[in-house]
């Protein structure tokens, strides 16, 4: 499934300013793993101790929080948009 992952500035500043990444993955977990493989600088933001996602991230698929679906195992479909948001930002 080809999907787009939209990233906040905290992520994009580490990958040359890229605000979104297109990739192919069957689930949200697979998509985030692939994102980290393509851009290793993002792994410390994405993951905590192995395959536990950073608790300070909120992940949406097509504007729905994945926690209201199957979490990281939420299946993806062609054209889906994943949005990664940090639950902590200042101001």
């Amino acid at each position: 499934m080809t999907v787009r992952i939209a990233l906040p500035p905290l992520f994009s500043e580490r990958i040359g300013g890229r605000g979104a990444v297109d990739l192919t993955a069957p689930t949200v977990r697979a998509a985030l793993v692939k994102l980290g493989e393509s851009y290793p600088d993002l792994n410390s933001l994405l993951w905590r101790s192995g395959d536990v996602v950073n608790p300070f991230l909120v992940v949406f698929v097509n504007d729905q929080d994945i926690q209201s679906h199957d979490g990281l195992d939420t299946p993806l479909h062609d054209g889906d948009e994943i949005v990664v948001v940090t639950s902590l930002e200042g101001g």
Partner: peptide, 8 residues
């Protein structure tokens, strides 16, 4: 609508 302001 983008991810940059979603927090706010």
């Amino acid at each position: 609508r983008g991810p940059g302001s979603k927090k706010f």
